[in-house]
Amino acid sequence: MIAKRVLVAGATGYLGQYLVKELKKRGYWVRVLIRKESQKEKFDNVDDFYIGQVTEPSSSKDVAKNIDWIFSTIGITRQKDGMTYMNVDYQGNLNLLKEALKNKAAAFQYISAINGDRLRHLKIFEAKEKFVDELKNAAISHSVIRPNGFFSDMKDFLDMARGGRVYLFGEGNLQLNPIHGEDLAKVCVDKMETGETETTVGGPDILSHNEIAALALKAWGKPIKISHLPDWTRRLTIQLTRTFTSSKTYGPIEFFLTAMACDNIANQYGNKRLEDFFSSEVKRIKANN
């Protein structure tokens, strides 16, 4: 059987790099979309490079030529350059979708985030979910992946714990199950292969904020010291950042602080543990100091 020809957009990002490795491991022919020549050195075994900007249709013409499947992790966190969420998360992905349709690609997978469909009022999700609507209405097989927080996002806990104390909003009992990028990449490819149209994806361990804080402190060898801030401070922070900063600044803060106020439990996958990730990160940090 001839291997599918796959395009990965957002390939230089955290998840994108794991996706490329997983696809190559499974024998797929892989083209990566990158923005500049120097980014080629991030990859050692891809089949084809396409240098272009999805926000500029003329520079990404025929990026999906002779491609069967497209995986897109494109989002503003991976591309700054003065762009807005609508420029990148919506229009950039829409331009990519138009190329996929023009070149008759078979399927398109988009990585959004857990609860994005319920939190459209947040700036970071407004553009993402507008694109999800376009994808679902397009004449192409689609797959929407909604991951929980990445292990890399949990570094905020680790950074606080380094000082010997972690600060949490509320009582710290709300739960989530973050996932490692390598585990998530496997799920993304699995879901594309099986044709699943939409799913939430999280890691194997469901943890409360208190438990994550304790794991972070333990990784540094610190006593468990956790301070709980009243929830009004979280709400006030959102209000102040919305009022006094740009959408690029307040968008991620608004999302993070809103997510901290509810349970975020996704379907459980993978076998990588947050405790092990924290331990390896601390070792890496100490080795580099």
Rank of each mutant, 00 (worst) to 15 (best):
N103I: 02
A138V: 01
K61G: 09
G75V: 06
Q53C: 04
K65L: 07
P57G: 00
F125Q: 15
K130M: 11
D133W: 05
D62R: 11
K61D: 06
N95M: 04
L96I: 02
V88Q: 00
S143G: 13
A138N: 05
E99R: 12
V132G: 13
K65D: 04
L122F: 06
I140H: 00
D156S: 14
K40S: 14
Q39I: 01
I114V: 15
K98D: 11
K123C: 14
L94P: 13
E37T: 15
K136G: 02
S143P: 14
E129H: 07
A106I: 00
F49D: 08
I76Q: 11
K42T: 04
N66T: 13
I140T: 03
H142D: 03
N148L: 11
N93H: 13
W69A: 00
F157C: 13
Q109C: 09
Q109M: 12
D47R: 14
R118I: 08
S60W: 09
E99A: 06
Y85D: 07
G82N: 10
Q91E: 13
S143I: 08
I70F: 01
N95Y: 06
F71T: 04
G75Q: 12
I76W: 07
T73S: 12
K98T: 09
L97K: 01
F108C: 02
E126V: 14
S58Y: 01
D117S: 13
R35Q: 07
K130W: 03
K80I: 15
I51H: 04
E126C: 13
I114T: 10
W69Q: 02
K40T: 15
L122P: 12
K123P: 08
A64T: 06
D47C: 05
F71M: 04
K61S: 05
D89P: 08
R78V: 05
A64E: 02
T84I: 03
I76A: 06
N93P: 10
D156M: 10
D62T: 01
K155M: 09
D44P: 07
Q91N: 12
R35D: 01
E37I: 15
R78S: 12
A64G: 02
V46G: 05
R120T: 11
M86C: 02
D153Y: 15
N95L: 03
N66W: 10
Q79T: 08
D47H: 12
A138R: 08
P57Y: 00
R120D: 09
F150S: 07
I74P: 07
R78I: 08
T73F: 03
D89Y: 07
T55N: 08
E37Y: 15
A107F: 10
G52W: 00
G82A: 12
P147H: 02
V132F: 14
V88E: 00
T55H: 05
D133Y: 08
D44Y: 13
A107L: 09
R35M: 00
N115L: 10
